[in-house]
Simulated scan of single mutants.
Amino acid sequence: MKSGGSAKMKDVAELAGVSIKTVSRVLNNEPHVQDKLRRKVKEAVERLNYVPSQSARSLRGNRSYDINLISHSRNSPYINSIQFGAVIACQKLGYQLSISLFEELNGKPIDAIRAAFEALMLHRKPDAVMLVAPYAGNEKIDYVLQELGIPVVRIGPVDISHRGVLVEIDDHKASIELTQHLIGLGHKRVGFVRGIEDQRATHVRYSGFCVAMDAAGLSVEESLVRKGEFDFESGFEAGEYFIGLEAPPTAVFCSNDDMAAGVVSACTVSGVKVPEEMSVVGFDDADVATRMRPLLTTIRQPLDELGALAVRELIAQLNTNGKAEPKRIVLGHEFIERDTTAPSPVD
C-alpha cells in the first residue's frame, strides 16, 4: 500500500474498507454519507497522506477545484491571516487557493471591473471567489459577480449579506465592549480614529463606540474624532493631533491595530506615557499588537478561522448544488487586555 503522497483513491478505499465511490463522496464533502464511514475515509486519507489530483477531477467535470482570493494589497496583515486559514481548509478538502491582486479596484468603472473578472474566469477558471474588505462590500463588484454567475464568499462586515456566503464577527458588539473597558477605567474624554470611509467596518465600529459612550452619559466630541486610513501613518498623524490639543483625550479608540500602533508611537516621540497619561486600544489583534511596546489592548478577530470557515461553507454548498446560497455566519470575538490601558489620570 502506498504512502508519502503517492497513494491513490483505491488505496484509501482499501484501507478504509469502503468503495471508491464513497471515498469520492467524502473527499467532495457531499451529504448523506454515514458519519462512521466518513471518519474511516478521513483516517485513511491522513494515514496515507493522500492528496486528491485536482487535474484529474477537473477533467471529469466542469470544475477547477480552485477558489480565488481577491486581494487589494500585497502587504495586508489582515488578508494574510485570512489567507492562511483558507489555504489550510482548501488543502484538507482537496481544493487549492489561488490569489489575484487587483489593486485600486474600488475606484475603477464597472467596465474595468468586468474586464478584470472576465480575464480571471478565462485564465484561472475558479469555482468561486473569496472577497475581503474593501472589495467584499463593493456594489459594482457584486453586480459583476452576479452578471457573470460567479459564486462568492465574503468576509465581513459588509451590507451585502443577501447573496452568497458571509462570515464575520459582530464588530458593533465588540466595539461597545472595547469602549466600555475604557469607560470602566474612568475615561470620559475619549478620542476615536476612524478607518477608510468606504469600508463598513469604519462605520460599524464608530457606531458601537457612540452607543457605549451615550449609554454611559458621555458625549462624543467632534474635535476628538479623526479620519484614518487603517495604516500606521494615519494613526501617527492622529496621535500627534490629539497630543497637540490644549486638553488631550485621556484615551483613544483606534479602528484597527496599525493605527493604534501609530498613536502609541506618536506618544513615545512626544514623551507622552502610555498608558499612564493616555490609554490606547486597537481592533483585530494583528501581529503588531504583540510586537509593539507596550503590548496593545485590542479585540481579537479569529482571522484564520474566518478564512477556514468561509472555505468550508463555500465548498459544502458548491458540492451540494453548485452555487453559494445566501448564508450569514457570525463567529465570536475576544477582548484582549494588555498594557496600553490604565485608569484615567483625570477624575
Rank of each mutant, 00 (worst) to 15 (best):
K125I: 14
K227S: 14
S234L: 09
C254N: 04
T250C: 06
K188R: 14
E233V: 05
K21R: 14
G85T: 13
G195K: 09
I82W: 00
E277V: 03
G17V: 10
Q96F: 11
R189M: 03
G235N: 05
S76K: 12
L314V: 08
E103A: 11
R338C: 09
R25F: 11
A238Y: 06
R291Y: 07
V225D: 02
D214G: 08
M121A: 06
I99H: 00
N106E: 06
P249S: 10
D287T: 03
P326D: 00
V346R: 11
D347R: 12
E168T: 15
M259S: 08
F335V: 11
R25E: 12
E313T: 11
T340A: 08
F102R: 04
N80G: 12
S270V: 02
Q91H: 14
S6V: 13
P52Y: 06
G271Q: 05
V158I: 14
D287F: 10
D257I: 10
R74C: 01
L309Q: 04
L37N: 08
S19I: 07
H203K: 02
R163A: 07
L145E: 07
S55A: 15
T340I: 12
N321E: 09
Q301S: 12
S265C: 05
R74F: 10
V288D: 05
R25Y: 10
L309G: 04
K140F: 01
D257G: 13
G156S: 05
D66A: 01
Y65L: 10
A316W: 02
E46T: 12
